[in-house]
Design a binder for these strands. Structure first.
Ligand SMILES: [Mn+2]
Ligand SMILES: [Mn+2]
Ligand SMILES: [Mn+2]
Ligand SMILES: [Mn+2]
Lengths: 219, 219
DNA sequence: AATAAAATTTAGACTAGCCTAAATTTTATT
DNA sequence: AATAAAATTTAGGCTAGTCTAAATTTTATT
């Protein structure tokens, strides 16, 4: 069994590698976990001993298949718990993260299987992120940032890049939510800010920064 | 905020004092927590510093009002989670304890309030134990052990003393559950074992040992 | 009241995780 | 290729929580 702390390291490494590089640096992990590089070095030695990561001093780290499985299981639990909080209890999507950070470390295969069943086997979490299956298989996301599209494009919101409560509440306030349709009415030349139409009803102006953090697929 | 470990010590102290004495000994705590007396002594010093227990060397411990509040809150969470597992997920009453031991340490007032609401504010847990309210107020139990009653008495099962999976499964197998009616048909002189009638339908023989572990109220 | 037994605490050591400061290695720049 | 800068690791130390063995205190028994 892995400790709470080890699980957090593995998840951090997974997330840092996920999109970008093939190995991740000590400093990047330290940043992510909000700890110091020296502490990370210590932990990397331990995780390497347990065959959870590939690690050679000074050369960066990657997850072994075994480590990846652990990481994906933590992510699975995190996302299922978030879904539970939003769907079954009265949590908003900006309130779930911190609690899920704790719940993801509860050890019980039966519990997570039952929660999955209770939620009717959801495929994505409240932020549109895919939920890995029991075997750690992950649906790959074909969504792209709204900032990649052009005037006239009709899109559906499928996720967010920034998961901060501040950003999520801004979306709420602006009338934006997962599944909503967006049509790009105009892109302002000067600063690339956008005028969009939401669900064929309301017009909204958003900055490029905001657009970058909204994930969409073409309708 | 108190650590996972501190919470477990406070809960153990609460439970040891609950019925019996006014103070609890170091060894009793060590037994309960499955740790050594020396470790308990260390922790008692810490809990006393935090004003969670009354403690003078060699003289036993009791909880301060502050410590009692923490203990009761952990017990509240434990029992609500057990109720959730049984009522909303497909857990049996003999399967919930270990998971609830983990879940009781999740820190989130909103979460536990929502679970309470979701369950429609239950008063007792799946084992018939009362659930403390948000302020740590506890319904006192007027139930007594089945071994205290006599031939002809008609009773209702309200709880159990032994919470072990083995005992709980034995009750399942014997057709006994909370809320069921029991009529004592006969008490065998020799070993005080009982013949009982369950819900006016089935007859069952149980040992004195089993009777001691079944809590009932008179109908 | 003295002594033996039991309970409890203290001493000293260990592991997990974390830290700062110093040493080492890698990478970037001249 | 040499040197400077940045990244990383190591050294040494700290806290929480645990343990064994030794010392101390309380309780039980003579
Ligand atoms: Mn999250
Ligand atoms: Mn999420
Ligand atoms: Mn329990
Ligand atoms: Mn219970």
């Amino acid at each position: 069994m892995n400790s709470h702390t080890e699980e957090n390291y593995l998840k951090a490494i997974y997330k840092l590698i996920e999109h970008d590089t093939d190995v991740v640096t000590t400093n990047a992990i330290a940043d992510k976990i909000k700890t110091k590089a020296a502490s990370v070095s210590d932990m990397l030695k331990k995780l390497a001993d347990k065959k959870l990561i590939n690690y050679q001093k000074y050369q960066g780290v990657s997850l072994t298949p075994k480590g990846q499985k652990v990481a994906l299981n933590i992510i699975r639990k995190h996302r299922l718990w978030e879904m539970f909080l939003v769907e079954k209890l009265d949590f908003k999507w900006d309130e779930v993260h911190d609690v899920a950070e704790q719940l993801e470390h509860i050890h019980s295969d039966k519990l997570i299987a039952e929660i999955d069943k209770f939620l009717n086997y959801p495929k994505v979490d409240p932020h549109g992120d895919p939920i890995p299956d029991v075997n750690g298989k992950l649906q790959l996301q074909k969504s792209k940032s709204l900032s990649n599209f052009s005037t006239g494009d009709i899109l559906v919101i499928t996720g967010v890049v920034d998961h901060s409560p501040a950003f999520l509440r801004y979306l709420d306030k602006s009338g934006l939510a997962l599944g909503f349709e967006i049509k790009i009415k105009e892109i302002i030349e000067f600063d690339k800010s956008l005028q969009i139409m939401i669900n064929k009803k309301n017009t909204l102006f958003i900055s490029l920064e905001v657009a970058k953090n909204i994930l969409v697929i073409t309708k």
